[in-house]
Nucleic acid binder design. Structure first.
Lengths: 141, 141
DNA sequence: TTATTCTATACTTGGTTAATATATAATGTA
DNA sequence: TACATTATATATTAACCAAGTATAGAATAA
């Protein structure tokens, strides 16, 4: 029932970029150093985020990555939905065909409802929310 | 983010037993046949359910397993909590020590909140609820 | 005492996650 | 235009874990 490291690292990547939102293009190397994640792995994780237009990238010297939208408009649920291979708790949620019991199985729907409850929660949290939580923690409150 | 087969099969096992709640001790071999799950695997799955006093077992000829409580008093959340190795979405939820960032990491708490939302949902569903859903489906409604 | 059923533990295997490595393409600047 | 710098793409590897099987054993009713 664990989230993949891609979802978790991806969320930290996005949060890190939100923290440097006004600093111009950001090097993944710096994010990697701050977050303790390998550059190579971050490069892999950032691809879906770019495709979904959460991040814009510039190549060459002085290049780097920037959030394509303000932190208020990006939710953790959105990030996880992009990076988690599947947003479901059971394979039959994605494809009923894999189990002949799907049409009559009462457990199938509860896994869907539970996954929905989880995502509703994640959708309700934006990067801006996370930023403010960070500040609260940092202030020692 | 998938639930383990133990949680899912275990829920179907318990539902099957609820469906035969008044039939006396039930053979796992019959559950296995009805549910399409191997007896050996069910035997493994049933152990934690017995330890948690959800099921009572009788050995020897004419033996079998019985629900130790009525279906109204058993929730899917309870079953999953027993059978899922961990009820969390990230390892740091179970043990903050594994990551030095835990004390200040704002993502840590959101994984906990999301897992909680999921479990709240599962806790709200009893085996009796599932039984009635089954009947509705069977009636073609 | 024997067939039947549950119990306990060890082992195997296959698939997935996580991560690294290698090669390539784009671009600003000297 | 050459070059350093940065991003992009794909392939490969290693470790881990879920899932299931196999083997041996203990309890009990008839």
């Amino acid at each position: 029932m664990k989230l993949s490291t891609k979802s978790r690292y991806g969320t930290r990547l996005m949060l890190d970029m939100a923290q440097h939102y006004h600093d111009g293009p950001i090097h993944l190397a710096n994010v990697a150093k701050r977050q303790g994640i390998s550059v190579k792995y971050l490069e892999q994780i950032i691809i879906p985020l770019k495709k979904a237009n959460y991040i814009r990238s510039v190549r060459g010297p002085k290049g780097g990555h920037t959030l394509a939208r303000p932190p208020e408009e990006i939710t953790v649920g959105g990030i996880v939905a992009l990076l988690e291979d599947s947003a479901s708790l059971a394979a039959c949620s994605d494809n009923p065909m894999i189990c002949e019991r799907s049409p009559v199985c009462p457990t199938r729907s509860i896994w869907q409802e539970a996954a929905q409850a989880m995502f509703d929660k994640l959708q309700s949290i934006t990067l801006a929310d996370l930023l403010s939580r960070t500040k609260i923690k940092a202030s020692g409150a």
